[in-house]
Amino acid sequence: MGVDRYSGLPFVARFRWNVGKTMEKFYRSFAEKKILAARCEKCGYTVVPPRQICPKCYSTISEENLVELSGKGVVESLTEVAFKLDGKGGYIWLEKPELLAAIRLEGASSTIFARVEGEAKVGSEVEPVWAEKIEGKPSDLISFKVVE
């Protein structure tokens, strides 16, 4: 059923986003297996990934207020994901579900979302899993795993 339709030329646009100077530092510090955050001098809110404007009180966070986190964190919420999207609107059903978690890193006020390996539960302590070859890029941080 349905009227005829044509897919036509694809609605595809490639993007290369400028991440800004603060995020650039964040990624480059991956090369030393470091996770940076920005701590607001005024209200103490610690935001990760770091940025220049405090998301809580909106004051400017200067570069001196970048802090290094331990990298360890606690799982706040967890879901078993059974699918991925293929980028074109289709579903890829996974043979084995993957775990996705909301993680509060030690010393941070904001939450990050990441894949988790191991028998994670809400409340589990996790630590980062780094790629074998690290180059100071987003791909360096593969996932988090439960601390044994």
Binding site: W17, V19, G20, M23, P49, S77, L78, T79, V81, K84, L85, E98, L100, A101, A102, I112, F113, A114, R115, P138, S139
Partner: peptide, 17 residues
Amino acid sequence: WFDRQNELLNEITLAAL
């Protein structure tokens, strides 16, 4: 800049969290 590096994130998985 950060979240779109993670292919598991979308409306449904975030709603699940």
